[in-house]
């Protein structure tokens, strides 16, 4: 019959697929974060168009001149000035296909689209920096003890009104 858009397949369920793959390869089970309590909720206190937005991305993004991430539970992060030229941005990671991210970093680090949102007055402005990290960290304890307090303090110091998170 006619071509064109076919019915959609449902979203991929990653947890059972990755669990099966790890079992097939003989790896230990990865413990997915399963939050049992409803998340805290902070309402916006002004229209989005008046908000200063910060963003945090996993995906192992760094700027040329910075130290790259390593692949063994790296809980460090990088502050990337939002004034940086896009060509200076790099991606390094063990867990996803980097092909498209290295063609155009915007697929995992939407800096250009966010700058357009300022021009469109969808948001008021961007914070001074974006923050980047690895994700895929096995030790929840290290994320809670080493990474989160420092990163939350940065976000508070930047006086952001809203934060966008872009995982991979």
């Amino acid at each position: 019959m006619s071509s064109g858009m076919q019915d959609r397949l449902p979203p991929v369920d990653y947890i059972p697929r990755i669990t099966a793959q790890y079992a097939g390869l003989g790896y230990g089970e990865y413990r997915w974060l399963a939050s049992e309590t409803q998340p805290a909720w902070t309402p916006l206190t002004k229209p989005l168009s008046e908000c200063r937005l910060g963003f945090i991305a996993t995906g192992g993004i760094y700027a040329s001149g910075q130290t790259a991430f390593h692949f063994k539970d790296d809980t460090s992060y990088r502050a990337i000035p939002n004034s940086i030229a896009t060509e200076e941005l790099r991606a390094t990671h063990f867990a996803y296909d980097l092909t498209d991210a290295r063609k155009d970093i915007n697929v995992v680090f939407p800096i250009e689209a966010l700058k357009s949102m300022v021009e469109e007055k969808k948001i008021a402005e961007l914070g001074p920096n974006s923050y980047t990290l690895m994700g895929g960290i096995y030790s929840t304890r290290r994320v809670i003890e080493d990474l989160i307090p420092s990163l939350v303090q940065r976000v508070l110091d930047d006086e952001l009104d809203v934060v966008l998170l872009v995982p991979v």
Binding site: A40, L151, V163, L165, P167
Partner: peptide
């Protein structure tokens, strides 16, 4: 990543997380 989102929200800043793994 969601641990970070939850912590920032708790610190009093609204967050939004993008996802392609529902």
């Amino acid at each position: 990543m969601s641990l970070i989102a939850r912590a920032i929200e708790e610190a009093g800043i609204p967050t939004l997380s993008m996802s392609s793994a529902r």
